[in-house]
């Protein structure tokens, strides 16, 4: 085994892991917030994420066709697609809740879960349908932006692409904004009250339905932002891209303790790092017998191990007991 090589790639793997981790953290927030309030897994969240990515790519391709992509400052473009992706994904999440989940409130737990799977499958093909009609293609590539593709050289073996720094900064800003919103504002207090006890919250004059919609709006917007950042970072997207990241983000939410917002952030980071290290070190450590294709298995093994040994997650669950 080549320890020198292991050490040499360490900083690069660390960087990959952190980027992946923030991505998972942003998506995991959508799962964990909805679970905290309604106690069910919003399966369609991975498609909300993908829709964000598609909104981003459509705007970029539109700008490119108009010849404006290279004229505008890249950070302005990035801000534009982030805001647009967040708006569309957030609204989509609210609509989904209104149409497919609200009529089922109070039904046995299995019912809204199955409905959510249905919405997820429907959206995958719906995105494909729209893109097939509109562009006659549904595997799309984010057009490169000159300013974002530059690399900053830190040492001889480590260089950081500008876009990686952008992804990390954007994620940090959003997580911080969410933290302020949930913990420091009246709206945030109301959301937490609804998660704690819907009946009592409504007796205190809180509009429960509005707060549930708001939860979906915020979670959806975070998912949309993650989608745009995913596209900027990794480039290739298709309507089915969301499935695996969604599954892993849910794992991250469970890892941190479902319903727990700081937990989801931490769980995302931990899982991202674990996965990046597994992907690059597994084949080195086993002499090439098991390669990076096992990284997904690795993530699920983590999930199963947590559920066996620490089912309430690292930071503890924030979910009320069902009466």
């Amino acid at each position: 085994m080549d320890f020198a090589l292991l050490l040499e790639i360490f900083p690069q793997v660390l960087l990959d892991g952190v980027i992946l981790g923030f991505m998972y953290a942003l998506i995991a927030l959508g799962y964990t917030m909805v679970y905290g309030v309604l106690e069910f897994i919003n399966f369609a969240h991975s498609e909300i994420f993908v829709v964000g990515a598609f909104v981003g790519v459509e705007i970029l391709l539109g700008l490119k066709n108009a010849g404006a992509l290279d004229q505008l400052p890249p950070f302005l473009v990035l801000l534009l697609i982030l805001v647009a992706g967040m708006a569309v994904s957030g609204l989509l999440a609210v609509v989904i809740e209104r149409v497919a989940y609200r009529p089922l409130r109070g039904a046995p737990r299995l019912i809204p879960l199955i409905s959510a799977i249905g919405v997820s499958f429907f959206l995958q093909d719906f995105v494909r349908l729209i893109e097939s009609v509109w562009r006659n293609a549904f595997n799309l590539v984010y057009p490169g932006m000159e300013g974002l593709n530059r690399r900053l050289e830190l040492t001889a073996t480590v260089d950081v692409p500008v876009k990686a720094l952008v992804v990390i900064t954007a994620s940090l800003l959003m997580l911080w904004a969410l933290h302020l919103l949930v913990n420091r504002t009246k709206l945030g207090t109301a959301i937490r009250a609804v998660a704690e006890d819907q009946a009592t919250a409504s007796l205190m004059g809180i509009n429960v339905n509005a707060m549930i919609s708001l939860t979906f709006l915020i979670g959806g917007a975070m998912g949309g932002a993650a989608g745009v950042l995913f596209g900027v970072q990794y480039g290739l997207i298709n309507p089915y891209t969301g499935f695996i990241p969604g599954l892993k983000a849910f794992t991250a939410a469970v890892l941190g303790g479902i319903g727990n917002i700081p937990g989801a952030m931490m769980g995302g980071l931990v899982l991202g790092l674990l996965e990046a290290f597994a992907a690059s070190y597994l084949s080195l450590l086993t002499g090439g017998a098991f390669g990076a294709e096992y990284k997904d298995i690795f993530a699920f093994s983590v999930l199963i191990l947590i559920l066996i040994f620490r089912p309430r997650g690292l930071l503890g669950e924030v979910v009320r007991e069902r009466a």
Partner: peptide, 23 residues
């Protein structure tokens, strides 16, 4: 568009079945 192939839209069928039946 040539990419428009109804045979490839199984997921949409499954999705619609699941949501409508649940509601």
């Amino acid at each position: 568009p040539t990419q428009l192939e109804p045979a490839k839209y199984e997921r949409m069928v499954f999705g619609v079945i699941l949501v409508l039946m649940m509601i």
